[in-house]
Amino acid sequence: MTVIVRTLSPTDPADAEGFARVRRACLPAMLATPASVAYDAARAHPDAHYRPLVAVDDAGTVIGTAQVGIAYDSPRPGQGYANVYVHPDHVGRGGGTLLLRTAEAHLAQHGATEVFCWALDGPRNLAWAAARGYRRSRSAHFLRLELTADALPPMPAPPSGVALRTAADFAADPRPLFAVFAQTVADEPSDIVAELRDYEQWLTDTWRNPLLDQGLTSVAVVDGVPAAFSLAQTDGDGRYWSGMTGTARAFRGRGLAKLAKNDSLHRARAAGVSVAYTGNDADNAPMLAINEWFGYTLDATEVRHVRTLDS
């Protein structure tokens, strides 16, 4: 079987469907739909040099994917990423290696000196990354919660001075949500530190993304000011992803993130969502504790890897 690697065409429905299908087979927690795949490919920031790749077999079937780009919003230059996934039915045929080498060449061309990638925790995947010159870094856990009738803790009344809203309530001006989102991103543990300063790009990447569910995204407001949020993404097929949960620095330590996430999950269950996913850095003890309290269980673990590119 011959495998070729090429850039995904955002205007080709078969490419977008194949990309989403492979991602769902490899990592169900990370939501992807044909619409979201095409959207991301068409609207990425130009400085990201984002290039989604597909590995295609003789029959024209997409059997592997790679999300490739430059971390342009990091204060440290030269950091690229290449997240490669091959459909479980097609591993061992060279598609993953071809995707990775194509990604590395693209990133080097655009100034990357380091490439970060994720590998699902398991002997085969970890050995694969090591054999291609990648060394282990930090880990992240994907968690799953079945939204059955009795799955969630009761929803308490908000404390005095706190009100619960949804992102839809900020449709006319989402900038106050961006401020909380940016603080959360800046303080999140990661190998690649991000600084969100571009409001317009945030609107493109997050606010207008087809996966965002404004009605299920909950916001805790204190005296009229957004203090905490739990961003919800849904795929229209009963799955929910906590895109991010966080609190503005001035309001931390008051349980507002837990309150917002509880409200969002209750809304999701009432809307017919059947399973909720979330993800946390393995060192993010506060959020891991919150998710354990909700009843989430481990679904998968990925290990971040990094390779310094040859000059």
Rank of each mutant, 00 (worst) to 15 (best):
R132Q: 10
S36Q: 05
L164G: 03
E188C: 15
E188W: 12
A35Y: 03
A268D: 00
T113W: 05
L100H: 02
F229W: 03
T278R: 01
G161W: 10
Y50H: 11
Y199A: 13
G215K: 03
V68F: 06
M155N: 12
E302Y: 11
N280S: 15
A140I: 07
T102M: 05
G224D: 07
Q214D: 05
L120H: 15
Q201L: 07
V219K: 01
L27N: 08
M1D: 11
Y240H: 07
E104Y: 03
V221C: 08
A71P: 05
Q67A: 13
A194D: 14
H87F: 07
E292H: 13
N284S: 12
E104D: 05
Q79D: 10
T113K: 04
D40G: 10
L53W: 08
D263C: 08
A112Y: 00
M287A: 08
E188R: 14
G133H: 01
Y277W: 09
V219F: 02
R269F: 04
T247E: 01
T204G: 10
A103E: 02
F170G: 03
A127V: 11
N209D: 13
S230W: 00
R132P: 02
S264I: 00
V303K: 01
I192E: 15
E292N: 07
A172C: 10
A271Q: 01
K258G: 03
G272E: 04
D173I: 13
I290W: 02
S274D: 08
D173A: 12
I70A: 10
D58G: 15
S264M: 03
T234P: 00
V56H: 13
G253Q: 05
R135T: 12
M287S: 12
P156H: 08
R144I: 08
H305P: 02
G224F: 07
L256N: 00
S242W: 00
Y85P: 04
G236Q: 04
T33V: 05
C26R: 09
L177Q: 11
A140Q: 14
L120Q: 15
L107F: 06
G255F: 01
A186W: 09
D281R: 04
I192A: 12
S160C: 10
A127K: 11
Q201H: 14
G224W: 09
D12W: 04
P158M: 06
D283G: 09
A228D: 02
G272M: 03
T206Y: 06
V91K: 14
L256S: 00
T113R: 13
Q79L: 15
R267F: 00
P13H: 03
K261M: 02
A48N: 15
E146Y: 05
W207Y: 13
V221T: 10
K258F: 02
H45P: 11
A163L: 11
L126M: 14
A248I: 02
E188H: 15
R249D: 11
G246T: 02
A250G: 07
G243I: 00
A105H: 05
G80A: 10
R307P: 01
T11F: 08
P210H: 08
A112H: 01
H87P: 05
E200W: 10
N262C: 09
L196D: 10
D283E: 13
A257W: 00
V273A: 01
R138W: 12
F116V: 05
T297V: 14
A179F: 14
D40V: 09
R101L: 06
A140S: 14
